[in-house]
């Protein structure tokens, strides 16, 4: 057990802060867009409308993706909301995209970059 923890801790230290400070490259935004709108991927658009011209048949179960920088001055908080919306509201209909392995951690980072523009 101790061995495991220390190994993990070392691994963790080496990477501190990298997830949030990651690159904002166009490629990442494009990937986020594909996940957001892809029916067999994130399918975020099923519930959240967004003012991207490619949007088709957006749902309204959840709030519109707008003014994200104002709503989430701390980008990591937005990431956390996607990772598990039930942490703040246990009755939320939103699937815990990270906690339940629906998207990978990298995919979540990409979606954050994409929607943070709106």
């Amino acid at each position: 057990m101790r061995k495991l923890i220390s190994a993990l801790a070392v691994a963790g230290v080496a990477f501190t802060g990298s997830a949030v400070a990651g690159s904002h490259s166009e490629a990442m935004i494009k990937e986020g867009q594909a996940i957001y709108h892809g029916k067999s991927r994130g399918n975020c658009v099923a519930c959240h409308n967004i003012q991207d011209p490619i949007t088709n048949q957006a749902g309204n179960q959840g709030p519109m993706i707008i003014a994200m920088k104002a709503r989430y001055p701390n980008k990591a908080e937005l990431r956390a909301q996607i990772w598990d919306a039930t942490a703040k509201n246990p009755l939320s209909i939103m699937p815990p995209m990270g906690k339940h392995n629906i998207l990978t951690e990298d995919e979540i980072d990409a979606v954050v970059e994409y929607i943070y523009q709106y």
Binding site: C47, N60, L91
Partner: peptide, 8 residues
């Protein structure tokens, strides 16, 4: 909760 709200 979600009745009459759009999913796609």
């Amino acid at each position: 909760t979600g009745t009459n709200r759009l999913v796609r």
